[in-house]
């Protein structure tokens, strides 16, 4: 598995690495560094250090460094990675030598948003303020990337079109569904306020959907549930009609694109991060079945007639930063399933 991951990182990053010169020898802070996004950025930076002598120092801010040890022991034990153990909300001072920050701390699990909404808002709003405050006192800060959320666009557009960064978004529903996106929206504005006041070089990224190794299958998103059901030998249950379309960017592409934004993104800009390859949920289920050794039943329950698409427009990031998808959805899914099958196997032993 290690080899697959190294190869995948290389495939995603090699076309871009020549534009990453500004990151060489720099100190990079990742908040939420034990999460899916944060850990993948760290993995890619480590690859640049190992393969291309980038000599970056990586600092991971997390409440619990041990979590990374459980998740990925190879990453945990490295000399070019150090930790700041802190709740992001009570962070005061950062090491003065930090040059870049990727701020990705926030739990994307919507079950948590529902059960603990106040804490969810607190971490996003107060946490972002704490980071920006600390960053404003750094002497040589060259770039800050804030991971907001594609959900700030609100409900998917009725016409199914891809959502561009200029989209005004559709009004959010009142109530509990809007807690996470509204907190993210507030934090985007907060970043821009710090940019305005202290001239902090902040770039905003709006992530959509990703898949890849190290993503927990028990997360409440359709594709994760499908994979979990299929790998357990249970039928895949599609609650709706299977027609809504999503797109999934593979983990190593996601990390490479984030590094491209960090190195070359314009401050004050907003970039969508995701894949433009649309797949319907039914196609997702069928693809999973074509990969696993013993296909399972697919039950389309037709509980609703929703056909909403939630797809980012990537024109801007493609043209501005020269990034592209290096993995088709099929390949991304294949690698993700391979990794999970391998993990299942080693757990059973």
């Amino acid at each position: 598995m290690k080899k697959m991951i190294q190869d995948d990182i290389q495939r995603s990053i090699q076309g871009l690495s020549s534009t990453f010169g500004s990151l060489k020898g720099k100190v990079i802070l990742i908040t939420g560094g034990t999460g899916f996004v944060g850990a993948w950025v760290a993995r890619s930076l480590v690859w640049l250090n190992d393969e291309l002598n980038f000599d970056c120092s990586i600092i991971i801010l997390t409440r619990n460094p041990k979590k990374l040890e459980e998740l990925d022991p190879d990453l945990y034990g490295r000399s070019d990675i150090s930790f700041i153990k802190s709740d992001i909300r009570s962070l005061h001072d950062l090491p003065q030598d930090i040059n870049y920050i990727i701020h990705s701390a926030a739990n994307p699990d919507n079950r948590v948003h529902m059960s603990d909404p106040v804490n969810t808002m607190d971490v996003i709003a107060i946490g972002t303020k704490a980071i920006m405050d600390a960053a404003s006192r750094l002497s040589d800060i060259k770039g800050i990337v804030y991971l907001s959320s594609g959900q700030v666009y609100g409900d998917a557009p009725g016409n199914g079109a891809a959502i561009s960064e200029n989209s005004q978004g559709y009004l959010l529903k009142k109530g509990i569904n809007s807690i996470y996106p509204e907190a993210k929206r507030y934090s985007e504005a907060l970043c821009l306020a710090y940019r305005s006041l202290y001239k902090l070089p902040v770039t905003i990224v709006r992530p959509f959907s990703f898949i890849g190794p190290y993503q927990e299958l028990n997360k409440p998103w359709a594709i994760n549930s499908f994979m979990q059901e299929a790998l357990n030998g249970q039928p895949i249950r599609i609650l709706g009609n299977g027609k809504p379309k999503r797109s999934y960017l593979y983990a190593t592409d996601m990390a490479a694109w984030l590094l491209a934004i960090l190195a070359n993104g314009k401050d004050g800009e907003v970039y969508n991060l995701g894949s433009s390859e649309e797949v319907s949920l039914l196609e997702v289920a069928n693809e999973i079945n074509s990969i696993i050794s013993i296909p399972v039943d697919i039950i389309v329950k037709n509980n609703n007639t929703l056909e909403s698409n939630f797809i980012p427009s990537l024109d801007y990031i493609h043209t501005q930063l020269g990034v592209k998808e290096n993995f088709t959805f099929k390949e991304a899914l294949l690698h993700t399933i391979k990794w999970n099958v391998n993990k299942q196997g080693s757990n059973d032993e």
């Binding site: 009142k174 109530g175 409440p220």
Partner: peptide, 18 residues
């Protein structure tokens, strides 16, 4: 009724199928 919807959305997010 509005609060009832909020509570139902929680259950839906946890994975309830109805």
């Amino acid at each position: 009724p509005e609060m009832l919807v909020q509570e139902a959305l929680k259950m839906e997010s946890y994975g309830a199928e109805g």
